[in-house]
Design a protein around this nucleic acid. Structure first.
Lengths: 137, 137
DNA sequence: CTGTTTGCAAACCATTTGCATTGGA
DNA sequence: TCCAATGCAAATGGTTTGCAAACAG
């Protein structure tokens, strides 16, 4: 992602463009493992020793509020960040503890249709996602 | 649940029977809202002022290891406990922040069948559950 | 200029741990 | 009796908060 695209991503979310936000967003986008704030911090500080941990937490939070990233909790209760916005599910590997994206439009359509045809008593469904646990082969 | 049933539940899990374990398990079974350890503690201590918070944490953990309760994380990263063992999904209400059980054997069969017919590349599925977010009507 | 963002450190809070005491089998 | 469970307090660790200094618009 080039400098201008990056800058646009940040400013179009209504956020001021800063060096810290740029490098944090860059790290997030090039991470495939849904890093925690701590993981983002350690990856970012290699090239940016001055950047503080508090800024990483605050920045990730700004991104969430600006709808640039999604936040979710893993099975240990840690907050994970994902720059992929479209709804999708996650694969939890019990061996490596890694979390991978699992996108499956067909399955999502099937579930959406299912909950349109089968209302849940007293509950209005807004969003459905899958937690898929297993092992990487 | 009467005293004997309760006692059996605990001892058949290989755990010693104690007053603390009894009242904690009782509270869990009569709570429909998937309480956190803190919630269990505050409910238990009303009738048992002597019971300590550490014991609640340790006891809940024993129950999980003895396969008497399930543990999962909510969307805020808090640990929740559920005395219902069969696999089932959860409804997250964005208004009340309450979590309800959602059991649907038909849907589970459908998903199981789906992942038998549609293998995920490089991943062996062991368990699938749904995170259903929405609003209580 | 002015309000936002950053850095740093302290505070927070759910959870875990250590250890002496108690109690179940 | 003997090991496991309890109570209490201290420690842990991820996350949040407060505030002065730096900075973007």
């Amino acid at each position: 992602m080039d400098f201008q695209t990056l800058k646009n991503k940040i400013t179009s979310g209504g956020l001021k463009f800063t060096h810290q936000r740029m490098v944090i967003y860059e790290v997030l986008c090039s991470s495939e493992d849904h890093p925690t704030a701590e993981m983002v911090f350690s990856r970012v500080k290699e090239a940016n020793p001055g950047l503080s941990k508090g800024t990483v937490y605050k920045t990730l939070d700004s991104f969430v509020h600006a709808n640039m990233v999604q936040k979710f909790t893993d099975d240990l209760g840690l907050m994970r960040f994902d720059p992929v916005l479209e709804s999708h599910s996650h694969l939890y590997c019990s061996k490596s503890k890694k979390i991978r994206d699992y996108k499956n439009t067909g399955l999502e359509k099937m579930l959406k249709k299912y909950f349109e045809e089968n209302q849940i008593d007293g509950f209005e469904v807004e969003e459905v996602s899958l937690v898929i646990k297993g092992k990487t082969k």
